[in-house]
Computed example of a mutant assay.
Amino acid sequence: MNTQTTETQSTFGVWRRRESYLFRLDLWLEERVSLRERRSILREIRDNIKADAAIRGIDTALDSLGSPRALARSFAEDGRGNRPSWNRAIYWFTGLLVLWWTLAFVYTAGMLSALISSGAESAESYFLGLPVSAFNRESGIGIGWEASSAVAYIPLMVMVVAAIIAGRLWRVRIGRR
Score class of each variant (00 low, 15 high):
Q4A: 13
T8V: 10
Q9Y: 12
T11Y: 05
V14L: 15
E19V: 09
S20G: 14
S20P: 01
Y21H: 08
F23M: 05
F23I: 00
R24D: 14
L27H: 08
W28G: 06
E31S: 10
R38C: 07
S40D: 14
R43Q: 11
E44I: 05
I45P: 02
I55P: 00
R56I: 13
D59C: 10
L62D: 01
L65H: 01
R73V: 00
A76C: 02
D78A: 13
D78G: 08
R80P: 00
R80H: 13
R83Y: 09
P84N: 02
P84I: 03
Y91K: 07
L96A: 04
L99Q: 01
L99H: 01
W101K: 03
A104T: 11
F105W: 10
V106N: 01
Y107R: 00
S113R: 12
I116C: 03
A120T: 09
E121F: 12
E121I: 13
E124Y: 05
Y126N: 11
Y126R: 14
F127V: 11
F127N: 10
G129R: 07
G129N: 08
G129F: 08
G129A: 08
L130M: 15
A134Q: 04
F135E: 11
G140R: 04
I141F: 05
I141L: 06
G144K: 06
W145L: 13
E146N: 08
A147R: 09
S148V: 09
A152D: 02
Y153P: 00
P155L: 05
V158Q: 08
A162I: 03
A162Q: 05
I165E: 15
W170V: 12
W170I: 09
R171A: 05
R173S: 06
G175I: 04
R176Q: 08
